[in-house]
Structures are given as C-alpha cells and as structure tokens.
Design a binder for these strands. Structure first.
Lengths: 212, 212
DNA sequence: ACGTGTGAATTAGTTCACAGCT
DNA sequence: AGCTGTGAACTAATTCACACGT
C-alpha cells in the first residue's frame, strides 16, 4: 500500500516507467532492473527505486523486477485497470488529430464524445464519432459519468468551457489552450503548450551553449 | 546581464510570463507587478521576482514593472527577437494540426518546411506548404540554417529522424513521439506526451482526493 | 553475489522577510 | 509609501551508500 503521499513529480514519472515496461513486454523480456530502466529512460537507477518505494516494494531482492508484474502494479496505481471515458471539446484541426490518435485507446482512455459550438462542424464525423453540439456537454458527461476531459478550444473559450466541465463533474482536464484555468482544488489540470516548449528551447539554442 | 546560470526550471517559466505580458499589452495595461502576475499565473509573487532576478532587474522600485519593457526583455532573453525557422517532420493528422496552427507565427517561430516519407503525402499542400520528401531534410535544414525541429512521426521512426536532424545541425527538437530520444548534450529535447499527462491525471481522479 | 529498498547526505528549488531604491 | 531585488531560511527532490533479503 501507499506509505507516504507520493510527490506529484513522482506520480508524473510513473507513466514513463509504464511505457518502458510495455515496451519491454513487447520485446519479450520477462525481467529488468532499475539500472536498465534508468538507462533507457535517462533517469538514475536510484530515482526509479525511490519513486517505486512510495508505492511499495515491487522487486525481488537481488533479481530486479518482473516486467509484467511491475507493469500491472503501475497500471493499478495509476488507476488504468479501468478504461476512462474522455470527452473532447473542440473539433478543429487539433481536435481532429486527437480524435484520430490511436494511442489513447491502448493506454486506458476512450473518447466518449466530441463537442464543438460551431454549427458547421456539428454533425460531422471524426473517426468513430459524430461531433455533437456543445449544448449537450453536461448531459453526456453525466450520463456516461465522465471524469476526464480534453480541452482543444481557442484560448478565449477555454475558461468558460472549463467551468462547465467542472460543474458537470469532470475532475481532470488536459488543456491545450494557452491559458491558466481557474478550477477548484479537487480538479487536476495538465497543460500542453508547444509554443512555450519551443520558446524554452529557443533560450538554449540561441545561447549556443549546452542544453541544460 | 545574466548573473548566475539560470536553472532550467526557471527558463521554463519565462514563456508563461511572456504570455501573460502579451495578454496585459492586449488589455491595454501599461504597468503591472509581481503580485498581479503571480495571481494570474498561479505562482507566488516572490518566485516571479526571484526568477526575473536571474536575468537582471527589470522593475521600478516601488512601482512594479513596465509591461512592454518587461515583455521586450523576456523576448530578448528567450532569443525571440528573431523568427526561428522550424522544420516539421511528419504530415499525419498531428502534422496537419501543427502546420495549420497560427500560434507559432505570432510567438517567434515559422514553419519553413514540412516533410514526410510517405509518397502518397509528398506533394500535398498543408497550409502554406507543400509536403516534401524526407530525403530533402538535410538539404533544407542546411540551406535555411534551421536549428529547431518538430518531430511528429510514429515512435518507431523518431530516433532515426532525430539522428538525421542532429547530424544536419538541429539543436532543439520538440518531440511528440512517445520515446526518449538519445541526442548529444548540446541538443535540447522537449517532449509532448498527452497520454502520459492523462495517466498522470488518472492517478488523482482515481484516488478521488485532492489534485496535488 | 546481487540488486532492491531506504535512511542519510546532498543538492535544488521555493518562500520568507527586509534592506534598498524611487 | 510601496514594490523590487535578494540573502537567508526553509522545503522539496535527488543521489548516495549500504543493510537487507533471496
């Protein structure tokens, strides 16, 4: 069981560990160790052991980790034994790319519905889904008990939509809009901001020095 | 001038500050202060002052910051006074969305060329650009002195393409593929992994507790 | 003998609190 | 009087190094 509350930064690395374990499974490997995982992820072996120790002891003394067992444990810790229904708000180019992306399904998430407020987009089919009017947002969230949303709307609309998502019961928002959302403390927001990442890189590229 | 080498985590926040200053300019504001910036970004005022102090003193004692001046200083620090040409590799759904995204242009970046290795995609027009055969990658990078690339190819191709980018002179890679790239230390890589972010959120949503 | 799991040591990052400048 | 800029204090994160179990 959980010993002490794991720091957020540790939780954030667990998906990387899970991804590597899935890869090792795909390669047919049955055991690994913290050294190998660290080498392949660019993380120190000590950090991997320490991170895992927040959630329990998953290794065999002297023998490393059983790949499938550790993979299953990480899935359990991250609550990925279930498939999470996710609503996608915004059916622009980004919404299209996200809706067609196959990686979500294989990782514990299923796009349950796509919404847009643009009448010319409503009714269109993207992947398996018909774009619905955003007016139906609350209804769908409640009917399907959706807890996680992906926000792919323009910046000016993001807060308004986020408020509605939260009011309807959503507890996690993956936000692609370049704004800081105001949400209550029980709601977790993650931001994806490629412009900020490019600007961060430009600092080092422009300095010509070592990429810290 | 730069005092001590700024930590990477500090550099990573500068784009957020810049974004907020751009917003304040758009709102017609001429001055601000660390308290206001912090409130709007969800960051402590002390942290903002400390972060800026790595690069110099930009405020007026007792009077906060001149919005435009600080904005310009951040642009200079991040090397955004120039427009960076960027190559985009991968013309799938994600490549489409990135190529059509307007936010890059207004933030210091310009997509100089789009590449794909799929003959059925080469020659297609996306936004302003014709998709080129990836065979021309090195030639274009060298001719246009491209230092930054966006990698939107499948995971299995990412390392190979990254190696070619680096060999051709690219010093910063924004990687959308779910792999850890092996690059020399002078190359900066930033990863965008929505699946990992969703899994990170699932931990908290599944725990039902406070979103750390 | 081996690699985990973990307190201890170290290093990094954040916040405090106030001197200093306008 | 007010808000910045910053050393000092504090907190968080990482790495060390070794006891431990198989």
């Amino acid at each position: 069981m959980t010993k002490r509350k794991a720091p957020d930064i540790v939780v954030g690395r667990l998906p990387l560990y899970l991804r590597m374990l899935n890869q090792l499974v795909a390669e047919g490997r049955s055991t690994t160790n913290s050294q190998e995982l660290g080498d392949r992820l660019g993380i120190s072996a000590a950090q991997i052991r320490k991170d895992l120790s927040y959630f329990g002891g998953f290794g065999k003394y002297g023998a490393g980790y059983d790949v499938m067992y550790l993979r299953d444990q990480l899935r359990r810790i991250l609550h990925l034994e279930q498939t999470w229904p996710v609503v996608l708000v915004g059916a622009g180019d980004l919404g299209h790319a996200l809706a067609n992306y196959r990686g979500f399904t294989t990782s514990g998430f299923d796009i349950a519905a796509i919404f847009d407020n643009d009448a010319t987009k409503v009714g269109a089919t993207i992947g398996q889904h018909e774009v619905q009017d955003v007016a139906r947002l609350e209804k769908v969230i409640q009917e399907q008990d959706v807890k996680i949303a992906i926000l792919a709307v323009p910046a000016h609309a993001a807060q308004t939509v986020a408020d509605r998502l939260v009011a309807a019961g959503v507890r996690g928002i993956l936000c692609y809009a370049p704004v800081i959302l105001k949400v209550p403390p029980e709601v977790k927001v993650q931001y994806i901001d490629p412009v900020a990442r490019l600007q961060h890189m430009a600092y080092y590229v422009g300095n010509g020095g070592d990429a810290a």
